[in-house]
């Protein structure tokens, strides 16, 4: 057994139990329903901003884009304007595709070796599909949850729900996004557990957020389709959170512990976010190999901390070799001293 994923798995179970027992048995609904979510959101916002500011404070001394296509050069050679951008527009297109379509990951290949040493590289799309499905499903689920924080529910959210429920099966009707999220997150976790090399590089920090998000999706699906929690009380609580007018303890107590487990998971995820690899969400925007144009031969990039360095000047070089240079017929700036010239 691998301690890294066992620790993470156990941590998620324990987190759920804390919230479930804390509300069902100890009656700490106010703590798990109000206080912790607020604190978590504050930690998330402050932490996220501080992290991004921290990166922004570091200098960008050189322009080091990874060029993935033909440079802009002679007028008759067609440049690759997106993968090797030389303009801001090109960079924006590159970043846009990177962020919404995971363009670099789309290139992924898988190396295979045959026994005679022949090596092949095949296009490998599963990680890209899994990652894209995960992120988009999560985004849709998040957007759908806005209905808990807005009254009346805005039309775009309703439209999204309609599209998400396109297949019209089950009662209540099944949202595709939730199912896709659960499958995608399970795939990402299973590939970490079962592909030996990926397991080898994975840390507890990699399993924990996957299990946590699995927990969030799982408890959410349980509530919606199986345990049928008191949705009106929940909306009273969530509307109270956004309007700072909290419902009575009676209402909070009417909500099932399962919901508090779900909410606690979300709170933990928010608070954990700024201190973890999940910050790739912000970091991608600041990645110097992607967000800069390859134009440093056209426009000078300035390094804010560029400092003078010791160099071996031409004059020093000529002093070292003047005699030999003159002898070889190489031009010199300073002629040989008469004494040296005589030696020849």
């Amino acid at each position: 057994m691998n301690v890294k994923y066992m620790y993470s798995f156990l941590a998620v179970i324990v987190l759920f139990l804390i919230a479930y027992v804390g509300t069902e048995a100890v009656g700490l609904q106010w703590l798990f329903g109000v206080l912790i979510p607020y604190v978590a959101l504050a930690v998330f916002l402050v932490g996220f901003i501080r992290r991004v500011m921290g990166w922004a404070r570091s200098a960008v001394p050189f322009r080091i884009p990874t060029t993935c296509g033909q440079q802009r050069t002679l007028p008759w050679i067609r440049p690759n304007r997106i993968d090797n951008p030389s303009t801001t527009g090109g960079v924006i297109a590159r970043m846009f595709l990177e962020i919404v379509a995971f363009r670099s990951l789309f290139r992924n290949t898988r190396m295979k070796a045959k026994a005679d040493g022949r090596i092949t590289y095949q296009w490998e799309i599963f990680l890209w599909v899994g990652a894209l499905a995960f992120h988009y499903a999560f985004a849709v689920v998040l957007a759908r949850h806005l209905r808990f924080f807005l009254e009346p529910v805005p039309a775009p959210i309703k439209l999204l729900e309609t599209v998400d429920a396109f297949f019209q099966f089950g009662l209540p009707v099944v949202y595709l996004s939730g199912v896709v999220l659960l499958i995608a997150v399970a795939y990402l976790a299973l590939r970490r557990i079962f592909i030996p090399m990926v397991r080898y590089i994975s840390l507890a920090n990699d399993f924990f957020p996957l299990f946590l998000i699995f927990g969030i999706a799982f408890t959410g699906i349980l509530m919606r389709y199986f345990s049928k929690v008191d949705i009106l009380s929940i909306k009273a609580l969530t509307m109270g959170l956004v309007s700072f007018s909290f419902p009575d303890t009676e209402v909070l107590k009417a909500i099932d512990g399962l919901f508090y487990g779900h909410l606690f998971f979300v709170s933990v995820l928010l608070a954990y976010f700024p201190f973890s690899k999940l910050m790739h969400m912000g970091g991608i925007f600041l990645s110097p190999t992607r967000n800069l144009p390859n134009d440093t031969r056209m426009h000078r990039h300035v390094n804010p901390w560029n400092y003078p360095v010791d160099v071996h000047t031409y004059a020093e070089y000529e002093d070292d070799f003047r005699e030999k240079m003159v002898e070889a017929g190489l031009p010199v700036d300073k002629p040989l001293e008469p004494a040296e010239a005589e030696k020849e």
């Binding site: 990166w55 404070r57 990680l127 590089i201 991608i284």
Partner: peptide, 29 residues
């Protein structure tokens, strides 16, 4: 170097260890 190079700082923080890079390296292969 974390202060001087944003690349270094960001790259220290945001890797998710997806493993896409693994079999791209000639030295690893």
């Amino acid at each position: 170097r974390l202060e001087r190079f944003r690349s270094f700082k960001v790259f220290m923080d945001i890797c998710v260890r997806c493993g896409a890079c693994a079999d791209k390296c000639h030295f690893f292969i």
